[in-house]
Design a protein around this nucleic acid. Structure first.
Lengths: 336, 336
DNA sequence: TAAGTTATTGTTAACGTATGCATAGTGTGA
DNA sequence: TCACACTATGCATACGTTAACAATAACTTA
C-alpha cells in the first residue's frame, strides 16, 4: 500500500538496511548513495511508519498533556493558553495528545511506550494518585501550576507572592499608604503566598501593618462583599484594597458602590487571576495575571530536556506574573 | 522491561498466540484459559504495546484534530468548546492529537498509519490544500464549520440561515414589524446565509421588505456603526436591527447611544456569534450562538462511523444554532 | 470402527524499522 | 606482498503483536 524502505531499496538497488541508514543520515553511508536514496524517497513521497519506528526504538513521539478535567469547571482561556503554549514547543517533533485525568479510571493503562513524556496541568490534589503512578513508571513528567510535595519532580509554578508584592508596590507608587487585603480561602497554598507578598511589599516600604486591614475571605464573591463591608466600617477606611482573587474584587466593588462610594475615585481595587470578565467590568479591573502560556512553555521545554537527559535535576521553577493595569486604581495624594 | 504477552505465556504455560487471543476475547479460547490468562495479565499489570498492535493491525488509535491555526486569531472559548466536544466522543478508544494546519509546511508527512481519522475545524479557504491532500490519501476525514465545495466529504456546518430566521421571528413575536439588517462582508458565505434567514422570516410573517432596511456591513465594529447611522437617518427608523455579527452590534449600539437613544428602549438589537464580551455589555447582548461543541460532537461521532465503514455516505449536516436571549431586545406595541 | 466434525491450542510468519555482526573492497604502511 | 585498517554495504534478527494455517484431542455419526 504505502511506500516502505524496502520499496525504495528495490528501486535504488541497495538493501533496505542501507536505505534506513541513508535516510537517518548515518555516517556509514557514502554521500552519493545518501543523495540517490533521498531523492528516490522524496519522489515516492515516502513517510516513515512511526509505529514500526516506535516499536524498535522504544519511543512513541507522543507528549501527553493532561488536565484535571476537560469538562465543566475548566476556564476556556486557561485551557487555550495552556494547549497553545505546550503546542508551540513540542509541535514538529512530537504529537500533542490532550486528555483529562478524570477520563482514566485506571492510570495503569498509561505506559512508557505510549508517551515519551507527560505534562500535567494540575488543578486539584485529586490528581496526585495519577502523578505518583506516572512517577513510578519512570515516565518523564512535569507538573504545572500546583505544588506537589514530598516528591522529587519538575514543578512549574506561578510566583504568586512576587506578583502580589509587585502589585502592592504599584499601589504604593500611586501614592497609597492605607492598603488592605481580603485574603483567600483558609488552608489554600495560594492564600498564604498572596498574603506573604502583600506583607512583604508593605515591609519593603516601611509601611506599618494594621491588623484591621487584613480580613478573611473565601475566594467567592460573597466573601469579598462581606470583607469589604468590614473594611468600610473602619474609622480609617483604606484607600486601596488588594483582593486575593477577581471574584472577591467584584464583591468588594459591589459593597463600595452600595455605600455610595466609587471605584477608583474613593477606593482603589486590585484583583488576582485576570478572569475573562475582568476587562469588561466598569471600571475595568486592574488585576494580576498568571501567564499560563508562559508556565506551559517553560514546562514543555523542561520536559523535552528531561526526555533527553533523564538524570536532570528535578527543580521547582517559579514563573513571574503580570500586572494588568486597567482602571480600578487611582493615583492619590502628592509625592510621598 | 515491561510485561509482554510472551511473559504471560511463559507463566500461564500457553503459547503467546493463545494469550493474545485470550486477551482479545477470541471465541477460539476456552473460558477457563481466558480467565486464567486474564488474571495473570492483571497481576502483572500488563498493558499492550500499542505500537506493535498498530503495526500489525495497520491502525494508530489516533484521531487528529486540526485547527487552521492554534496561534493568535483563535478565540479561546471556540477552541475549548471544540476540543471538549471532540474529546468527549473519542476519549477512551482513541488518542486525541491536537494540532494546527499551519504547523505542517508539508502535509505529506501525514499518513494513514498515523491517523485513523482526521477532524478539521476549518476557518479559512487556505486549509483546502491540506484537506485535498488528506482526501487523496483516503484517510477518513470530517470538516467542520466551513463548507468545502466540489468535493464529496462529510461536512458539519452551522445552520446560520435557520438561526437568523428564528431570531428574527423572535423579534416579530416581541411585536416588532420595522426590522432592519446590517449585512456581513460581501462575498462571504455566512453573509448570504444570514441574510437569507432574515428575508425568510419576514416573508413567513407577511412583512414587507424595505430596501432601506437592508444595509451593507463588513463584519467590523466601524461598519456596524456606520450602518446604524444610515438607519438612524431614515424617516422611519426601525424598532429592531439584526446585526450579522456581534462586533457590528457593538458598533450599532454606539451609534444609537450617540444619537441620544437607548437600547433596547428605543431600538432592539440582535447580534450573531455570542462573543465572549456579549454577556458583559450593557445591555447584555441578545445574540445567536453557534454551538461549536455540538458541531464538534456531531463531527466526531460521524468520523467514528466513517472509520468503521468507509463506504458511508458523505453528507452535509447542519447543526442548529441557539438564540441567547439577554437584554437587548424589548417587547413593543400590543398584540398584532 | 473409520471418517468427519468441533473445540482448543501451537507454529510460523508478517507488519516496517533499526542495528549488531559479517563481508567485500580499497587503500596504507612496513 | 602481506597484514591491517577503514569504508561502504548486506544479512539476519529483534521489537510485540496478530492471524493464517497446522495440529491435536475429543466427540459424532454412519
Amino acid at each position: 500500500m504505502s511506500v516502505t524502505i524496502k520499496d525504495i531499496a528495490k528501486i535504488a538497488g541497495f538493501s533496505h538496511t542501507t536505505v534506513s541508514r541513508a535516510l537517518n543520515d548515518s555516517h556509514l553511508i557514502s554521500k552519493e548513495t545518501k543523495e540517490k536514496i533521498k531523492t528516490i524517497a522524496e519522489t515516492l513521497n515516502y513517510t516513515p511508519n512511526y509505529n514500526a519506528k516506535s516499536l524498535v526504538l522504544n519511543r512513541s513521539y507522543n507528549i501527553g498533556l493532561f488536565f484535571s478535567t476537560i469538562n465543566e469547571g475548566t476556564s476556556s482561556s486557561f485551557f487555550y493558553e495552556v494547549v497553545k503554549g505546550v503546542n508551540s514547543v513540542v509541535c514538529g517533533e512530537f504529537n500533542l495528545i490532550v486528555s483529562g485525568i478524570d477520563e482514566y479510571s485506571n492510570p495503569n493503562t498509561i505506559n512508557k511506550k505510549h508517551f515519551d513524556g507527560i505534562i500535567i496541568m494540575s488543578q486539584s490534589t485529586k490528581d496526585d494518585y495519577f502523578i505518583y503512578n506516572i512517577l513510578e513508571k519512570k515516565i518523564p513528567i512535569v507538573v504545572l501550576n500546583r505544588e506537589v510535595q514530598d516528591v522529587q519532580l519538575v514543578n512549574i509554578l506561578s510566583d504568586d507572592r512576587k506578583g502580589v508584592e509587585n502589585a502592592v508596590e504599584y499601589l504604593i507608587n500611586e501614592g497609597h499608604r492605607n492598603i488592605a487585603i481580603i485574603e483567600g480561602k483558609k488552608g489554600f497554598k495560594s492564600t498564604q503566598e498572596r498574603k506573604k507578598g502583600f506583607i512583604k511589599a508593605l515591609i519593603n516600604n516601611n509601611i506599618s501593618i494594621y491588623k484591621d486591614y487584613i480580613v478573611k475571605g473565601k475566594y467567592d464573591l460573597e466573601s469579598g462583599y462581606q470583607g469589604m463591608k468590614q473594611l468600610l466600617n473602619l474609622s480609617n477606611i483604606p484607600t486601596a484594597v488588594f483582593c486575593s482573587n477577581d471574584d472577591m474584587a467584584v464583591g468588594a466593588i459591589k459593597a463600595i458602590v452600595e455605600e455610595g462610594l466609587n471605584v477608583p475615585e474613593d477606593i482603589s481595587i486590585i484583583g488576582f487571576d485576570d478572569n475573562v470578565f475582568a476587562s469588561y467590568l466598569s471600571p475595568a479591573l486592574t488585576t494580576i495575571k498568571k501567564s499560563f502560556e508562559e508556565i506551559s512553555i517553560r514546562g514543555a521545554k523542561k520536559l523535552l530536556k528531561l526526555i533527553e537527559d533523564e538524570t536532570l535535576e528535578r527543580e521547582r521553577i517559579y514563573v513571574s506574573t503580570e500586572l494588568q493595569i486597567r482602571e480600578s486604581v487611582k493615583r492619590v495624594g502628592g509625592i510621598s
